[in-house]
Every structure is written in C-alpha cells, then in structure tokens.
Design a protein around this nucleic acid. Sequence first.
DNA 1: GCTTGACTTAGACATTGTCCATTGTAGGAT
DNA 2: ATCCTACAATGGACAATGTCTAAGTCAAGC
Lengths: 138, 138
Amino acid sequence: MSDLLERLRGRGWRMTAQRRVVAEVLDGDHVHLTADEVHARAVGKLPEISRATVYNTLGELVSLGEILEVSTDRRAKRYDPNAHRPHHHLVCAQCGAIRDVHPTGDPLTDLPDSERFGFTVQDVEVTYRGVCPNCASA
Amino acid sequence: MSDLLERLRGRGWRMTAQRRVVAEVLDGDHVHLTADEVHARAVGKLPEISRATVYNTLGELVSLGEILEVSTDRRAKRYDPNAHRPHHHLVCAQCGAIRDVHPTGDPLTDLPDSERFGFTVQDVEVTYRGVCPNCASA
DNA sequence: GCTTGACTTAGACATTGTCCATTGTAGGAT
DNA sequence: ATCCTACAATGGACAATGTCTAAGTCAAGC
Ligand SMILES: [Mn+2]
Ligand SMILES: [Mn+2]
Ligand SMILES: [Zn+2]
Ligand SMILES: [Zn+2]
C-alpha cells in the first residue's frame, strides 16, 4: 500500500522502518488484528520493533483516519484498515471470527428525536453476533 | 427489589449479606455501573465485602439473566439491571453518560441473507455515540 | 556530514479482570 | 439449639491489555 505511505509522508510523517512495517502488516482489506497480533507480524519483518512503537503507530493511524478501532469483544481492540467504506461487523460468538457486513437502511434514522434526549448523535456502531458456519458444523 | 431477591432464592441461591447488598446496589432501572462502582457502593453498606465477591455475584446475575453486561467503552464492562425490556445505548463521547434508547425497526431484518455469510445470527448490539446536552453547553 | 527534534525502546506502571487456597457460614438435618 | 457440609467469601497472586517515561537513536533538512 504505497498509497498509504505516500499519503502519510505528505502529511509530514517521518518515515521509519518501524512505521513502514506496521503499515505493511495492515495492508489488505479483510483483517481485524489486535495490537499484539500486529506486533507479532511486524516482528517477523523487523525483529527489534517494540510493543510501544506498535501501539503508538496504531494510535496515530487511527487519529489520521487511516484505520479504525473496533471493539467487537471485551478483550483487545482490533484495528481495521477498511476505513474507506462504512460498514459494521458480524462476530462469531464461539471462535471470534469477524466479517464486514453492510446492512440496508441507516440505524441513525431509526432513532427518533424523542429518543435522543438532546444529544447530538454523531455515529452508530452495530455488532451482530452469531455462530459461523465453521463452528456450527463442529 | 425484593422481587429479585425472591426470584433468586427460588432458584436455590444461598442468600448472603454480600449478595443482598450487590442486588440492592443494582436496584433501580437507569444505572450502568462498572464492577468497581458496584463494589464501592456495596462497601458503603457492608464494608468488608471483597472485590472478588462482587465480580462473582455480577457474573452469576448475568448468567441468570437478571442483569446485562454492556460494553459501551473499551474500559470496564457495565452492569445493566434493565434486562426486562430490550434496548440499546446512547453514549456521550465526552463524559461517558449513558442513556437507554429504543430505536424503531429491527436491525436484524436490515441484514440480508447475502450479508450473513452462513452465520446463524442471534443478536445485535447497537451503540449510538454523540455529545450530551450537558457537554454541548460547556 | 551535522544538528535537532521527532521517533523508538525497555520496562515500570495502571486498569480491569480471573484464579486459587483458605476461611467462613447458610440452611438443612438431627 | 447444635452440628454438618457444601457452597460462598476473602485476600492476594496472577494475567491481559494498554499507557507512560527517561534515555538513546535517527530521518531529514541544512
Ligand atoms: Mn471491518
Ligand atoms: Mn441500559
Ligand atoms: Zn466460529
Ligand atoms: Zn456528556
């Protein structure tokens, strides 16, 4: 994803080997890795990269809007490179598998004014839970 | 909520002073307390109650379906005594205030078969985020 | 090639939650 | 009323995830 690296450089990011490998790990659209999973894969390419740097870099990418944080379970946050197209998530309650889903309709329009209590509603996050075909057949 | 205590006793719950105070703390419908907040309030009524017991009791109440776990932020789980009426949550991004909301429509029907990937979808959790009137006026 | 401020690092620390061995007790049996 | 015992409570160790800091390193502009 030289696209991403170019955009980041354009924003004044100092390009280091560490940031490059983190961006490489997140390349591809259908992953939802935890910080430690990102770290493990980054170590494969750059053995001396530290946990703190991975956390820092992920946080920066989130601030820049290049990746999203998703919290589908109560364990670790997951980092989602699919920040371009709005979507929600379908999670297997047994194995934790995550799929991107695109429900029809807008949940925001389903929240009437009388149910907004004066809040300025900005965003909505929908998480579907169920059992994936793999777990169902086991 | 002697209702709750009666129901629990009926299910063979051994009634201890600790369980009673935890149930008392959760009495009332519009609270979403963390385990440590429940513990702090329980200590006010029964100073020697331990953290482990509060965690155990909350876990049991969740298993029994008497309260719900909600994860509106990535910090601590919150415990919701409003397990009777299905609802979702509206959270202030600034102060963390939480309101129960009842959107119209069913998000489950908004997820077409083609977006289910063979999953058996069981449940959906919707979290609205925004700014509460209090924070907006500050 | 220097210089310098931004970046990286290791590890201490914080928060939230779980686990376990020990001690205590609710509630039934006598 | 007392005893028994299975179930519950306790404190503290441990685990998982994440944050912070002080010291060292280096990318990039001059
Ligand atoms: Mn996604
Ligand atoms: Mn609620
Ligand atoms: Zn599964
Ligand atoms: Zn607020």
